[in-house]
Amino acid sequence: MLVALFAPAHMVAAATKVPKKAYSVTAILPGNQVDKQLNYWQLHLSPKQVQSLQLQVANIGREAITVRVQANNGTTDANPQIIYSQSASTIYPKPATSFASMVIGEREQAVTLAPGAVKILTFRIRAPADHFSGMILGGLYATADVTTTATQVRQIVAYQRSVVLQGKDINQVRPKIQFGAAKPVAEAGRFVLYLATRNTAPMYAYALTNKLTIYRQDTGKRVVHTSGTDGKIAPHSRFNWQFLIPKLAAGSYEMRLVIAGNNVARRTVIRHFTIEPVQVQAVSDYRPTGRRNFGVVLLLIVLIGVFMVVSWVLIYQRGRRHGQQLRKKTK
Results as ranks from 00 to 15, higher is better:
V34R: 13
T143G: 04
A64I: 01
T229A: 12
A96L: 07
M11H: 01
A150Q: 13
S284H: 07
Q51E: 11
R126N: 06
T66C: 03
R267A: 14
H236D: 14
G74K: 06
N210W: 03
L193V: 05
A260D: 13
E254H: 06
V157N: 12
V18Q: 13
N72I: 07
N59P: 05
V264K: 05
G116D: 01
G290F: 13
I136V: 11
E108Y: 03
R292L: 10
F239G: 12
T76D: 09
L137C: 05
T229Y: 06
Q317M: 02
A158K: 11
A142R: 03
P47S: 08
V269K: 12
V192H: 01
I259V: 15
I120N: 12
G31P: 06
A15C: 06
R321Y: 00
Y204K: 00
V310K: 04
G139W: 11
Q81V: 00
F307M: 06
R291C: 01
I170D: 14
T76I: 04
V269R: 11
P128A: 11
V283D: 08
L53D: 08
I60P: 12
V57E: 08
A100P: 06
Q70H: 14
A234L: 09
T26C: 04
G167E: 08
V67F: 03
T97F: 04
T268D: 07
K329P: 00
N72E: 10
R287W: 01
I315C: 01
T112W: 05
N32S: 15
G116S: 01
T76A: 11
W41C: 06
A158D: 14
T148A: 07
G228H: 12
I170T: 14
P8G: 15
T148V: 13
G139L: 10
V264P: 10
A4E: 01
A282M: 05
A71F: 15
V164C: 02
N262W: 02
A114F: 03
I275Q: 04
P288L: 07
G231F: 03
Q49A: 09
P128G: 09
R271H: 08
L121W: 10
L29Y: 10
A201C: 02
L38K: 10
N293R: 14
S311V: 00
V173T: 15
R271L: 07
P30V: 03
F191C: 04
Y84T: 04
R222T: 10
P95H: 10
F99I: 00
G189D: 09
Q166S: 02
K119W: 06
H272S: 10
V12P: 00
Y316D: 02
F99G: 06
R154M: 12
Q217N: 06
F294V: 08
P30C: 07
K176G: 05
Q281N: 07
V111R: 09
F123G: 05
A260K: 10
I65C: 08
N263K: 05
S311F: 09
R161G: 11
Q56K: 15
V278N: 12
T289M: 13
P175D: 04
S87A: 15
P47D: 11
L298M: 08
V296F: 08
Q109D: 05
F132W: 12
Q317F: 05
V297K: 07
Q325A: 08
V12S: 10
Y92W: 15
Q155L: 12
S52H: 12
A117I: 00
V69E: 12
G134W: 08
F243T: 09
R190P: 04
Q37N: 13
P235R: 13
V50C: 01
A250E: 03
T219S: 12
A88S: 14
G180H: 03
G319R: 08
R256W: 01
V146N: 04
